[in-house]
Design a binder for these strands. Structure first.
Length: 440
RNA sequence: UCCUCAGUAGCUCAAUGGUAGAGCAUUCGGCUGUUAACCGAAGGGUUGUAGGUUCGAAUCCUACCUGAGGAGCCA
Protein backbone atom coordinates (compact mmCIF):
# COMPACT_ATOMS: atom_id res chain seq x y z
CA UNK A 1 0.00 0.00 0.00
CA UNK A 2 1.39 3.33 -0.88
CA UNK A 3 1.15 6.54 1.09
CA UNK A 4 -1.74 8.74 0.02
CA UNK A 5 -1.04 12.24 -1.22
CA UNK A 6 -3.42 15.02 -2.23
CA UNK A 7 -1.80 15.48 -5.66
CA UNK A 8 0.59 13.45 -7.84
CA UNK A 9 3.63 12.61 -5.78
CA UNK A 10 7.06 13.69 -6.99
CA UNK A 11 10.57 14.01 -5.59
CA UNK A 12 12.45 17.28 -5.28
CA UNK A 13 14.94 16.13 -7.90
CA UNK A 14 12.05 15.96 -10.38
CA UNK A 15 10.73 19.45 -9.62
CA UNK A 16 12.08 20.92 -12.87
CA UNK A 17 9.90 18.60 -14.93
CA UNK A 18 6.69 19.66 -13.18
CA UNK A 19 6.76 23.45 -13.31
CA UNK A 20 3.20 24.83 -13.39
CA UNK A 21 1.71 21.63 -11.95
CA UNK A 22 0.19 21.00 -8.56
CA UNK A 23 2.16 18.23 -6.86
CA UNK A 24 2.73 16.62 -3.47
CA UNK A 25 6.19 16.18 -2.00
CA UNK A 26 6.72 14.02 1.08
CA UNK A 27 9.75 15.01 3.13
CA UNK A 28 11.19 16.58 6.24
CA UNK A 29 11.52 20.18 7.36
CA UNK A 30 15.11 21.20 6.71
CA UNK A 31 14.89 24.81 7.83
CA UNK A 32 12.22 27.45 8.29
CA UNK A 33 12.28 31.21 7.90
CA UNK A 34 9.21 33.21 8.76
CA UNK A 35 8.07 36.75 8.89
CA UNK A 36 4.64 37.39 10.31
CA UNK A 37 2.17 36.54 7.58
CA UNK A 38 4.50 34.64 5.26
CA UNK A 39 6.88 31.78 5.92
CA UNK A 40 9.41 29.78 3.92
CA UNK A 41 9.67 26.15 4.97
CA UNK A 42 12.56 24.38 3.27
CA UNK A 43 11.72 20.77 2.59
CA UNK A 44 14.23 17.99 2.03
CA UNK A 45 13.32 14.54 0.77
CA UNK A 46 16.61 12.76 0.21
CA UNK A 47 16.84 13.85 -3.42
CA UNK A 48 17.26 17.55 -2.74
CA UNK A 49 15.99 20.59 -0.87
CA UNK A 50 13.20 22.86 -2.08
CA UNK A 51 11.92 26.10 -0.65
CA UNK A 52 8.18 26.34 -0.12
CA UNK A 53 6.19 29.51 0.42
CA UNK A 54 3.21 29.66 2.72
CA UNK A 55 1.19 32.90 2.70
CA UNK A 56 -1.27 33.42 5.54
CA UNK A 57 -3.97 35.02 3.42
CA UNK A 58 -4.00 32.09 0.96
CA UNK A 59 -4.30 29.28 3.50
CA UNK A 60 -6.67 27.97 6.15
CA UNK A 61 -5.70 29.42 9.52
CA UNK A 62 -4.66 26.06 11.04
CA UNK A 63 -2.50 25.12 8.05
CA UNK A 64 -0.56 28.36 8.21
CA UNK A 65 -0.15 28.17 11.99
CA UNK A 66 1.00 24.54 11.80
CA UNK A 67 3.64 25.38 9.20
CA UNK A 68 4.79 28.58 10.86
CA UNK A 69 5.48 26.79 14.13
CA UNK A 70 6.86 23.59 12.68
CA UNK A 71 10.06 22.21 14.21
CA UNK A 72 13.21 21.16 12.36
CA UNK A 73 13.14 17.61 10.86
CA UNK A 74 9.41 17.19 11.43
CA UNK A 75 8.02 14.98 8.67
CA UNK A 76 5.33 16.41 6.40
CA UNK A 77 3.75 16.18 2.98
CA UNK A 78 3.29 19.49 1.21
CA UNK A 79 1.03 20.02 -1.76
CA UNK A 80 1.08 23.04 -4.04
CA UNK A 81 2.00 24.48 -7.39
CA UNK A 82 5.60 24.51 -8.59
CA UNK A 83 7.21 27.44 -10.34
CA UNK A 84 10.61 28.71 -11.29
CA UNK A 85 11.90 31.27 -8.84
CA UNK A 86 15.29 32.91 -9.04
CA UNK A 87 15.14 34.06 -5.42
CA UNK A 88 14.78 30.49 -4.14
CA UNK A 89 17.84 28.35 -3.42
CA UNK A 90 17.58 25.57 -6.00
CA UNK A 91 15.75 27.65 -8.58
CA UNK A 92 12.26 26.23 -7.96
CA UNK A 93 9.66 27.06 -5.38
CA UNK A 94 6.42 25.48 -4.24
CA UNK A 95 3.42 27.61 -3.28
CA UNK A 96 1.84 25.70 -0.44
CA UNK A 97 -1.86 24.87 -0.76
CA UNK A 98 -2.04 22.00 1.70
CA UNK A 99 0.28 20.58 4.32
CA UNK A 100 -0.06 17.28 6.13
CA UNK A 101 2.15 17.04 9.19
CA UNK A 102 3.09 13.37 9.59
CA UNK A 103 5.12 13.69 12.78
CA UNK A 104 5.95 16.89 14.58
CA UNK A 105 9.27 16.95 16.41
CA UNK A 106 8.49 18.11 19.97
CA UNK A 107 10.05 21.47 20.86
CA UNK A 108 11.11 20.31 24.31
CA UNK A 109 13.35 17.71 22.64
CA UNK A 110 14.37 19.42 19.41
CA UNK A 111 16.43 17.94 16.60
CA UNK A 112 19.99 18.14 17.93
CA UNK A 113 21.83 19.04 14.73
CA UNK A 114 21.13 22.67 13.97
CA UNK A 115 22.28 24.41 10.78
CA UNK A 116 25.17 25.90 12.77
CA UNK A 117 28.54 24.34 13.44
CA UNK A 118 29.17 21.32 15.64
CA UNK A 119 32.19 19.42 16.90
CA UNK A 120 33.41 16.04 15.70
CA UNK A 121 32.50 14.13 18.84
CA UNK A 122 28.95 15.44 18.91
CA UNK A 123 28.41 14.76 15.23
CA UNK A 124 29.86 11.26 15.43
CA UNK A 125 27.59 10.49 18.39
CA UNK A 126 24.69 11.59 16.19
CA UNK A 127 25.90 9.92 13.02
CA UNK A 128 22.45 8.35 12.49
CA UNK A 129 21.07 11.90 12.13
CA UNK A 130 24.18 13.58 10.72
CA UNK A 131 23.78 11.66 7.45
CA UNK A 132 20.72 13.85 6.74
CA UNK A 133 22.93 16.93 6.47
CA UNK A 134 23.76 18.21 3.01
CA UNK A 135 27.47 17.58 3.13
CA UNK A 136 27.24 14.03 4.49
CA UNK A 137 24.44 13.33 2.09
CA UNK A 138 26.61 14.45 -0.85
CA UNK A 139 29.56 12.31 0.26
CA UNK A 140 27.45 9.17 0.59
CA UNK A 141 25.97 9.76 -2.84
CA UNK A 142 29.45 10.01 -4.31
CA UNK A 143 30.33 6.78 -2.52
CA UNK A 144 27.32 5.05 -4.08
CA UNK A 145 28.42 6.33 -7.49
CA UNK A 146 31.95 5.03 -6.94
CA UNK A 147 30.64 1.59 -6.02
CA UNK A 148 28.37 1.50 -9.05
CA UNK A 149 31.24 2.56 -11.30
CA UNK A 150 33.54 -0.12 -9.90
CA UNK A 151 30.94 -2.82 -10.51
CA UNK A 152 30.19 -1.53 -13.99
CA UNK A 153 33.85 -1.46 -14.88
CA UNK A 154 34.55 -5.04 -13.88
CA UNK A 155 31.20 -6.44 -15.04
CA UNK A 156 31.73 -4.99 -18.52
CA UNK A 157 35.36 -6.06 -18.81
CA UNK A 158 35.01 -9.80 -18.45
CA UNK A 159 35.41 -10.10 -14.68
CA UNK A 160 33.03 -12.39 -12.81
CA UNK A 161 31.87 -11.35 -9.36
CA UNK A 162 32.69 -14.20 -6.98
CA UNK A 163 32.51 -13.07 -3.39
CA UNK A 164 34.84 -14.56 -0.84
CA UNK A 165 34.08 -15.52 2.77
CA UNK A 166 34.08 -13.12 5.67
CA UNK A 167 34.75 -15.85 8.26
CA UNK A 168 38.18 -17.21 7.50
CA UNK A 169 40.14 -19.96 9.22
CA UNK A 170 43.47 -18.15 9.27
CA UNK A 171 45.43 -15.14 8.23
CA UNK A 172 45.67 -14.24 4.59
CA UNK A 173 48.94 -12.53 5.29
CA UNK A 174 50.17 -11.26 8.61
CA UNK A 175 48.62 -12.67 11.76
CA UNK A 176 48.47 -9.97 14.37
CA UNK A 177 45.82 -7.75 12.86
CA UNK A 178 42.82 -10.09 12.75
CA UNK A 179 39.58 -9.88 14.66
CA UNK A 180 38.94 -13.20 16.34
CA UNK A 181 35.40 -14.60 16.52
CA UNK A 182 34.05 -17.53 18.54
CA UNK A 183 32.70 -20.18 16.22
CA UNK A 184 30.92 -23.43 17.11
CA UNK A 185 32.56 -26.20 19.15
CA UNK A 186 35.24 -23.95 20.59
CA UNK A 187 36.59 -23.15 17.18
CA UNK A 188 38.11 -19.78 16.39
CA UNK A 189 37.59 -18.01 13.09
CA UNK A 190 38.74 -14.61 11.95
CA UNK A 191 37.08 -11.77 10.07
CA UNK A 192 38.61 -11.46 6.62
CA UNK A 193 41.27 -8.89 5.99
CA UNK A 194 41.44 -9.66 2.28
CA UNK A 195 39.71 -11.98 -0.12
CA UNK A 196 42.83 -12.35 -2.17
CA UNK A 197 43.86 -15.95 -1.55
CA UNK A 198 40.33 -17.06 -2.37
CA UNK A 199 40.35 -14.78 -5.41
CA UNK A 200 43.34 -16.68 -6.71
CA UNK A 201 41.25 -19.86 -6.55
CA UNK A 202 38.23 -18.27 -8.25
CA UNK A 203 40.38 -16.66 -10.95
CA UNK A 204 41.86 -20.07 -11.79
CA UNK A 205 38.25 -21.22 -12.27
CA UNK A 206 36.85 -18.22 -14.17
CA UNK A 207 39.86 -16.46 -15.71
CA UNK A 208 39.10 -13.04 -14.28
CA UNK A 209 37.17 -12.45 -11.07
CA UNK A 210 36.61 -9.86 -8.43
CA UNK A 211 35.23 -9.77 -4.93
CA UNK A 212 33.71 -6.75 -3.27
CA UNK A 213 32.78 -6.53 0.35
CA UNK A 214 33.67 -5.47 3.85
CA UNK A 215 37.14 -6.08 5.19
CA UNK A 216 38.35 -5.98 8.77
CA UNK A 217 41.68 -4.92 10.18
CA UNK A 218 42.42 -5.01 13.89
CA UNK A 219 45.14 -2.43 13.61
CA UNK A 220 45.40 0.13 16.34
CA UNK A 221 45.78 2.83 13.76
CA UNK A 222 44.45 6.19 14.80
CA UNK A 223 44.75 8.30 11.68
CA UNK A 224 42.43 10.07 9.30
CA UNK A 225 42.97 7.28 6.75
CA UNK A 226 42.07 4.16 8.74
CA UNK A 227 38.87 2.32 9.56
CA UNK A 228 38.67 -1.08 11.27
CA UNK A 229 35.85 -2.05 8.90
CA UNK A 230 36.07 -0.87 5.32
CA UNK A 231 34.98 -1.94 1.85
CA UNK A 232 37.46 -3.26 -0.63
CA UNK A 233 37.22 -4.39 -4.23
CA UNK A 234 39.76 -6.98 -5.29
CA UNK A 235 40.13 -8.13 -8.90
CA UNK A 236 42.31 -11.09 -9.81
CA UNK A 237 43.45 -12.08 -13.33
CA UNK A 238 45.10 -15.20 -14.70
CA UNK A 239 47.72 -15.28 -17.44
CA UNK A 240 48.60 -11.78 -16.30
CA UNK A 241 51.76 -10.08 -15.14
CA UNK A 242 52.59 -6.92 -13.20
CA UNK A 243 52.11 -4.68 -16.22
CA UNK A 244 48.61 -6.09 -16.78
CA UNK A 245 47.75 -5.38 -13.16
CA UNK A 246 48.97 -1.81 -13.49
CA UNK A 247 47.02 -1.28 -16.69
CA UNK A 248 43.73 -2.47 -15.20
CA UNK A 249 44.25 -0.41 -12.04
CA UNK A 250 44.87 2.68 -14.13
CA UNK A 251 41.89 2.07 -16.41
CA UNK A 252 39.54 1.40 -13.54
CA UNK A 253 40.54 4.54 -11.68
CA UNK A 254 40.11 6.72 -14.76
CA UNK A 255 36.73 5.10 -15.39
CA UNK A 256 35.50 5.73 -11.84
CA UNK A 257 36.75 9.32 -11.72
CA UNK A 258 34.97 10.01 -15.02
CA UNK A 259 31.72 8.55 -13.70
CA UNK A 260 31.84 10.70 -10.59
CA UNK A 261 32.49 13.79 -12.69
CA UNK A 262 29.68 12.93 -15.10
CA UNK A 263 27.03 11.93 -12.58
CA UNK A 264 27.81 13.62 -9.28
CA UNK A 265 28.66 17.18 -10.32
CA UNK A 266 26.10 18.72 -7.96
CA UNK A 267 27.45 16.78 -5.00
CA UNK A 268 31.05 17.78 -5.79
CA UNK A 269 29.88 21.38 -5.87
CA UNK A 270 28.12 20.99 -2.52
CA UNK A 271 31.46 19.71 -1.19
CA UNK A 272 33.40 22.61 -2.73
CA UNK A 273 35.58 20.03 -4.47
CA UNK A 274 38.05 21.51 -6.96
CA UNK A 275 36.92 19.44 -9.95
CA UNK A 276 39.85 20.55 -12.09
CA UNK A 277 41.98 18.30 -9.87
CA UNK A 278 39.76 15.37 -10.85
CA UNK A 279 39.55 16.35 -14.53
CA UNK A 280 43.34 15.95 -14.58
CA UNK A 281 43.13 12.25 -13.68
CA UNK A 282 43.92 10.72 -17.07
CA UNK A 283 46.02 7.82 -18.32
CA UNK A 284 48.90 7.37 -18.35
CA UNK A 285 49.64 7.73 -14.65
CA UNK A 286 53.16 8.38 -13.47
CA UNK A 287 55.23 5.24 -13.10
CA UNK A 288 58.20 4.90 -10.82
CA UNK A 289 60.27 2.13 -9.32
CA UNK A 290 60.66 1.86 -5.57
CA UNK A 291 64.37 2.58 -6.09
CA UNK A 292 63.65 5.89 -7.83
CA UNK A 293 60.99 6.76 -5.26
CA UNK A 294 63.53 6.38 -2.45
CA UNK A 295 65.99 8.62 -4.32
CA UNK A 296 63.29 11.22 -4.92
CA UNK A 297 62.19 11.15 -1.29
CA UNK A 298 65.73 11.48 0.01
CA UNK A 299 66.24 14.47 -2.27
CA UNK A 300 63.14 16.01 -0.69
CA UNK A 301 64.53 15.51 2.79
CA UNK A 302 62.90 12.23 3.87
CA UNK A 303 64.75 9.95 6.28
CA UNK A 304 63.75 6.86 4.30
CA UNK A 305 66.40 4.23 3.54
CA UNK A 306 66.25 1.54 0.86
CA UNK A 307 64.37 -1.37 2.40
CA UNK A 308 61.96 0.70 4.46
CA UNK A 309 58.26 1.28 3.84
CA UNK A 310 56.80 4.68 3.02
CA UNK A 311 55.31 6.67 5.85
CA UNK A 312 52.30 8.91 5.49
CA UNK A 313 54.51 11.94 4.95
CA UNK A 314 56.52 10.09 2.30
CA UNK A 315 53.42 9.36 0.24
CA UNK A 316 52.44 13.00 0.33
CA UNK A 317 55.96 14.11 -0.62
CA UNK A 318 56.00 11.68 -3.50
CA UNK A 319 52.91 13.15 -5.13
CA UNK A 320 53.04 16.81 -4.09
CA UNK A 321 54.33 17.92 -7.51
CA UNK A 322 52.13 15.51 -9.49
CA UNK A 323 48.69 16.10 -10.99
CA UNK A 324 47.76 12.43 -11.28
CA UNK A 325 48.40 9.22 -9.34
CA UNK A 326 51.81 7.59 -9.26
CA UNK A 327 52.32 3.84 -9.52
CA UNK A 328 55.32 2.71 -7.54
CA UNK A 329 56.52 -0.83 -8.18
CA UNK A 330 59.20 -3.38 -7.31
CA UNK A 331 59.33 -3.09 -3.54
CA UNK A 332 61.94 -4.81 -1.37
CA UNK A 333 60.80 -8.38 -0.82
CA UNK A 334 61.17 -7.95 2.93
CA UNK A 335 58.33 -5.45 3.32
CA UNK A 336 55.84 -7.34 1.17
CA UNK A 337 53.60 -10.32 1.92
CA UNK A 338 54.71 -13.89 1.28
CA UNK A 339 52.70 -14.41 -1.89
CA UNK A 340 54.39 -11.83 -4.15
CA UNK A 341 56.34 -12.93 -7.19
CA UNK A 342 59.92 -11.70 -7.22
CA UNK A 343 61.57 -9.98 -10.13
CA UNK A 344 63.40 -12.72 -12.08
CA UNK A 345 66.33 -10.34 -12.69
CA UNK A 346 66.42 -8.96 -9.15
CA UNK A 347 65.40 -11.43 -6.46
CA UNK A 348 65.59 -8.71 -3.81
CA UNK A 349 62.50 -6.94 -5.15
CA UNK A 350 58.88 -8.10 -5.30
CA UNK A 351 56.59 -7.52 -8.27
CA UNK A 352 54.17 -5.43 -6.25
CA UNK A 353 52.66 -2.06 -7.08
CA UNK A 354 51.10 0.68 -4.97
CA UNK A 355 48.98 3.36 -6.55
CA UNK A 356 49.32 6.58 -4.62
CA UNK A 357 46.68 9.25 -5.16
CA UNK A 358 47.64 12.93 -5.39
CA UNK A 359 46.70 15.68 -2.91
CA UNK A 360 47.89 13.66 0.06
CA UNK A 361 45.25 10.91 -0.21
CA UNK A 362 47.94 8.27 -0.14
CA UNK A 363 47.82 4.61 -1.09
CA UNK A 364 44.48 3.72 -2.63
CA UNK A 365 45.57 0.52 -4.33
CA UNK A 366 48.03 -2.22 -3.43
CA UNK A 367 48.59 -5.21 -5.62
CA UNK A 368 50.93 -7.11 -7.84
CA UNK A 369 51.87 -10.37 -9.47
CA UNK A 370 51.61 -13.53 -7.34
CA UNK A 371 54.30 -16.15 -6.94
CA UNK A 372 53.13 -19.10 -8.95
CA UNK A 373 55.83 -21.70 -8.38
CA UNK A 374 55.14 -24.17 -5.58
CA UNK A 375 58.78 -24.26 -4.49
CA UNK A 376 59.02 -20.51 -4.18
CA UNK A 377 55.81 -20.34 -2.14
CA UNK A 378 56.91 -23.09 0.23
CA UNK A 379 60.18 -21.28 0.82
CA UNK A 380 58.39 -18.01 1.36
CA UNK A 381 55.96 -19.46 3.91
CA UNK A 382 58.93 -20.73 5.83
CA UNK A 383 60.67 -17.35 5.75
CA UNK A 384 57.52 -15.68 7.06
CA UNK A 385 57.08 -18.33 9.77
CA UNK A 386 53.66 -19.30 8.47
CA UNK A 387 52.26 -22.81 9.04
CA UNK A 388 52.26 -24.75 5.78
CA UNK A 389 49.19 -26.78 6.84
CA UNK A 390 46.99 -23.69 6.99
CA UNK A 391 47.67 -23.04 3.33
CA UNK A 392 47.24 -26.55 1.95
CA UNK A 393 44.31 -25.63 -0.27
CA UNK A 394 46.11 -22.52 -1.48
CA UNK A 395 49.18 -24.55 -2.39
CA UNK A 396 46.93 -26.83 -4.46
CA UNK A 397 46.51 -23.90 -6.85
CA UNK A 398 50.25 -24.19 -7.58
CA UNK A 399 50.03 -27.91 -8.22
CA UNK A 400 47.09 -27.97 -10.60
CA UNK A 401 47.71 -25.66 -13.51
CA UNK A 402 49.63 -22.76 -12.01
CA UNK A 403 49.92 -19.76 -14.30
CA UNK A 404 51.23 -16.22 -13.89
CA UNK A 405 48.48 -14.16 -12.28
CA UNK A 406 47.92 -11.04 -10.29
CA UNK A 407 45.48 -8.51 -8.99
CA UNK A 408 44.99 -5.69 -6.54
CA UNK A 409 42.80 -4.32 -3.80
CA UNK A 410 41.27 -0.88 -3.68
CA UNK A 411 39.75 0.69 -0.59
CA UNK A 412 36.40 2.28 -1.40
CA UNK A 413 36.52 4.78 1.45
CA UNK A 414 39.96 6.10 0.58
CA UNK A 415 38.92 6.45 -3.02
CA UNK A 416 35.71 8.23 -2.03
CA UNK A 417 37.61 10.56 0.31
CA UNK A 418 39.87 11.47 -2.60
CA UNK A 419 36.90 12.14 -4.91
CA UNK A 420 35.15 14.27 -2.30
CA UNK A 421 38.24 16.04 -1.00
CA UNK A 422 37.27 15.13 2.58
CA UNK A 423 39.73 15.59 5.38
CA UNK A 424 38.82 12.37 7.18
CA UNK A 425 37.83 8.92 5.93
CA UNK A 426 35.15 8.59 8.66
CA UNK A 427 32.75 10.69 6.59
CA UNK A 428 32.88 8.35 3.58
CA UNK A 429 30.94 5.46 5.16
CA UNK A 430 27.53 5.73 6.79
CA UNK A 431 28.53 4.19 10.11
CA UNK A 432 32.31 4.21 10.49
CA UNK A 433 34.02 1.66 12.68
CA UNK A 434 37.22 3.00 14.16
CA UNK A 435 39.71 2.24 16.90
CA UNK A 436 37.65 3.82 19.65
CA UNK A 437 34.25 4.15 18.06
CA UNK A 438 31.67 1.48 17.30
CA UNK A 439 28.50 3.48 18.00
CA UNK A 440 25.94 4.28 16.71
C1' U B 1 51.28 1.63 22.94
C1' C B 2 53.59 6.68 22.84
C1' C B 3 53.47 12.24 22.14
C1' U B 4 50.53 16.84 21.92
C1' C B 5 46.02 19.44 22.69
C1' A B 6 41.09 19.82 24.58
C1' G B 7 36.75 18.96 28.08
C1' U B 8 32.32 25.44 30.87
C1' A B 9 24.33 25.99 29.01
C1' G B 10 21.27 21.20 24.19
C1' C B 11 25.39 23.03 20.39
C1' U B 12 29.88 26.27 19.17
C1' C B 13 32.91 28.99 22.19
C1' A B 14 34.46 33.30 25.95
C1' A B 15 35.83 34.38 31.04
C1' U B 16 44.45 38.18 34.74
C1' G B 17 43.40 32.93 40.92
C1' G B 18 38.28 37.30 42.82
C1' U B 19 29.95 38.11 40.82
C1' A B 20 29.37 32.07 35.33
C1' G B 21 29.16 35.10 29.75
C1' A B 22 27.87 35.45 24.27
C1' G B 23 25.93 33.51 19.64
C1' C B 24 22.91 29.52 17.89
C1' A B 25 18.90 26.19 19.55
C1' U B 26 14.13 26.33 22.74
C1' U B 27 9.79 29.47 24.59
C1' C B 28 7.03 34.31 24.19
C1' G B 29 6.30 38.90 21.19
C1' G B 30 7.09 41.68 16.21
C1' C B 31 7.65 41.59 10.83
C1' U B 32 4.22 39.62 3.34
C1' G B 33 10.40 37.74 0.01
C1' U B 34 13.39 35.27 3.77
C1' U B 35 18.48 33.03 1.94
C1' A B 36 22.71 29.45 8.27
C1' A B 37 16.69 35.75 7.91
C1' C B 38 16.23 39.82 11.22
C1' C B 39 14.53 42.78 15.86
C1' G B 40 12.97 42.51 21.29
C1' A B 41 12.44 39.45 25.76
C1' A B 42 12.65 34.89 28.86
C1' G B 43 14.19 30.18 30.70
C1' G B 44 18.56 27.31 30.73
C1' G B 45 25.11 25.81 34.79
C1' U B 46 27.41 20.36 40.52
C1' U B 47 32.76 24.32 34.72
C1' G B 48 34.46 15.70 32.68
C1' U B 49 35.47 12.76 37.68
C1' A B 50 38.23 12.36 42.38
C1' G B 51 41.71 14.52 45.37
C1' G B 52 45.16 18.65 46.60
C1' U B 53 47.26 23.97 47.01
C1' U B 54 44.76 28.72 48.44
C1' C B 55 41.19 33.46 52.38
C1' G B 56 39.15 32.27 47.51
C1' A B 57 39.87 27.50 41.81
C1' A B 58 36.55 27.02 35.42
C1' U B 59 41.65 28.95 35.95
C1' C B 60 47.35 26.18 39.58
C1' C B 61 49.07 20.75 40.92
C1' U B 62 48.24 15.07 40.82
C1' A B 63 45.57 10.85 39.14
C1' C B 64 41.78 8.98 36.27
C1' C B 65 37.87 9.25 32.32
C1' U B 66 36.38 10.95 27.44
C1' G B 67 37.52 13.04 22.74
C1' A B 68 40.66 15.13 18.85
C1' G B 69 45.32 15.56 16.09
C1' G B 70 49.81 13.01 15.16
C1' A B 71 53.51 8.88 15.56
C1' G B 72 54.23 3.87 15.38
C1' C B 73 51.73 -0.20 13.14
C1' C B 74 49.34 -0.91 8.38
C1' A B 75 46.87 -5.56 3.07
Amino acid sequence: MSVETAAPRITIAEAGKHVGETVSIPGWLYNLRRSGKICFPQLRDGTGVIQCVAVKSNLPEETFEALKNLTQESSLIVTGKLREESRAPGGYELDVEQAHIVQRVPEDDPYPITPKEHGTDFLMDHRHLWIRSRRQHAILRVRAEVIRAIRDYFDSNGFVLVDTPIFTPAACEGTTTLFEVDYFEDQKVYLTQSGQLYNEATAMAFGKTYCFGPTFRAEKSKTRRHLTEFWMVEPEMTYADLDDVKKVAEEMIVFCVRRVLDNRRAELKELDRDVSKLEAIQAPFHRMSYDDAVVKLQAKGSEIQWGGDFGNADETLLTEDLDRPVMVDRFPTGIKAFYFETDPNRPEVALGVDVIAPEGYGEIIGGGQRAHSLDVLLKRLEEHNLPKEAFDWYLDLRKYGAVPHGGFGMGVERFTAWMCGTEHIRETIAFPRMLYRTRP
